[in-house]
Simulated scan of single mutants.
Amino acid sequence: MAEKEYGEIIGSNGRPRFGICKNPLESFDLKKLRRYGRDVQGPVSAFRLKRWQYLGVCNEEVIFGLAVVDAGYLGNMFTYAFDRETKELLEYDIIHPLGLATEIKGNSLSGNASFKSGKTDVYMKIGADSIELTAMVKGRLKAELRFERYSEAMNIVTRVGLKGFNYTTKESGMAVSGTIGVGDREFTIEPSQSSGVLDYTFGYLSHYTFWNWASGGGFDKEGRRIGFNLVQGVNETGYTENAFWIDGRMIKTDTIDFQYNDLNILDPWRLVSSDGKVDLTFYPEGERKKALNLGILMSNFHQPFGRFEGTLRDGTTEYQIQTGFGFTEEHEAKW
């Protein structure tokens, strides 16, 4: 894997620096951006710029996720908690026009993300070694979590169509500590039994987008900490963001084929990489879903939660997943 070393997303020629980056990018200054095919510098409409910070954690009891999203013309916070024993799902999805309730500052190494609206107050403090999340949503869903970051993340800049770009930092399988409160019930999150997910994304994305995503982690039969981030349909132009982690060490993998029954999303899924490094089966236990179509704005998705089994390979070494949990996703969007 040829990794590139630089700190800014825009190169000396005024265009995005496409490729896999050794370290997370620190500067997203778009004043130097040259518009494709034109000798004109400066960012295009802020309404086309999308940025979000997503954090998730899974263990044997609960699967939890929360995102702060700045979509330019609107701000969004969504969160959910899925009780794996009772199969109960509590979720909230709050939208504000023009991003008035949303603030995302800094980058994926240092900064913060917040969302405030009525009885909802979310704050993420982003650091190079850890990320802290404090959330109270509608007085019913609360979280106090600390994510211990890896020294190796998947950092990538890819083309979006002819003129756009997308940057993302992904980490999966991180140790997480803290608590999640769902109504009157509280889940204690222990680092030795949890698996955390980070998705930091920034870019000029296509108006119409489709993707499959699988993310999660757990432990193999030898007790090693594992994590994986797998996609198809997005970030596949020249480079992919597909990778898995073994005890914090990242192994890059190639394109992924998502095999699932579109007539019954809760049937088992199979995820296989073209290079033979990934062969996983996913067994859904429940899902969150949405079908929203407002013409220029659309979000149709299924996100099943459940457990993973299978094999990850690095050269001649195989890692058999003993305890794996997380989610898959089918998402079609206009934004």
Score class of each variant (00 low, 15 high):
residue 170 K to S: 05
residue 243 A to P: 05
residue 92 Y to R: 13
residue 293 N to D: 15
residue 108 S to L: 06
residue 191 P to N: 00
residue 272 V to R: 02
residue 16 P to T: 05
residue 310 G to H: 04
residue 81 A to E: 07
residue 101 A to T: 05
residue 169 T to M: 15
residue 27 S to A: 12
residue 127 G to V: 10
residue 257 D to L: 01
residue 187 F to N: 08
residue 267 D to H: 00
residue 326 G to W: 04
residue 197 V to G: 02
residue 254 D to Q: 08
residue 269 W to A: 01
residue 302 H to L: 02
residue 317 T to W: 01
residue 73 Y to V: 07
residue 239 Y to Q: 13
residue 293 N to H: 12
residue 308 F to R: 04
residue 289 K to H: 13
residue 113 A to H: 04
residue 271 L to G: 05
residue 317 T to K: 14
residue 74 L to N: 09
residue 255 T to C: 06
residue 232 Q to Y: 01
residue 222 E to L: 14
residue 57 V to W: 00
residue 324 G to S: 04
residue 309 E to Q: 11
residue 168 T to F: 04
residue 146 R to Y: 02
residue 209 T to H: 04
residue 332 E to L: 13
residue 63 I to T: 13
residue 253 T to W: 00
residue 248 G to I: 01
residue 251 I to Y: 10
residue 61 E to F: 11
residue 287 E to K: 13
residue 20 I to Q: 09
residue 200 Y to G: 03
residue 42 G to D: 10
residue 178 G to S: 10
residue 157 V to R: 07
residue 281 T to S: 11
residue 298 M to I: 04
residue 276 G to F: 03
residue 164 G to D: 06
residue 41 Q to M: 10
residue 177 S to Y: 04
residue 84 R to C: 06
residue 142 K to F: 11
residue 254 D to Y: 00
residue 117 S to P: 00
residue 269 W to K: 01
residue 235 N to E: 09
residue 220 D to C: 07
residue 149 R to W: 08
residue 202 F to E: 02
residue 158 T to D: 12
residue 280 L to E: 10
residue 86 T to S: 15
residue 277 K to G: 06
residue 167 Y to N: 04
residue 261 N to V: 03
residue 47 F to Y: 09
residue 150 Y to N: 14
residue 182 V to I: 14
residue 150 Y to M: 07
residue 175 A to C: 12
residue 277 K to V: 05
residue 308 F to L: 01
residue 13 N to D: 15
residue 17 R to K: 14
residue 195 S to Y: 03
residue 185 R to I: 12
residue 184 D to A: 11
residue 105 K to T: 14
residue 219 F to G: 00
residue 253 T to E: 02
residue 123 Y to W: 08
residue 216 G to N: 06
residue 39 D to W: 09
residue 223 G to R: 05
residue 41 Q to E: 15
residue 197 V to N: 08
residue 192 S to R: 00
residue 211 W to Q: 04
residue 275 D to H: 02
residue 110 S to K: 15
residue 281 T to K: 11
residue 284 P to H: 07
residue 67 A to W: 01
residue 329 E to L: 08
residue 90 L to E: 11
residue 167 Y to R: 08
residue 280 L to W: 00
residue 153 A to E: 05
residue 322 Q to L: 11
residue 28 F to H: 10
residue 197 V to T: 12
residue 34 R to P: 03
residue 139 G to I: 10
residue 130 S to Y: 06
residue 238 G to T: 11
residue 32 K to P: 03
residue 3 E to C: 02
residue 154 M to C: 11
residue 162 L to D: 13
residue 170 K to R: 14
residue 142 K to D: 13
residue 180 I to T: 07
residue 205 L to D: 00
residue 72 G to F: 07
residue 147 F to Q: 08
residue 41 Q to C: 10
residue 240 T to N: 15
residue 146 R to V: 15
residue 314 D to E: 14
residue 300 N to W: 04
residue 253 T to C: 12
residue 264 N to R: 06
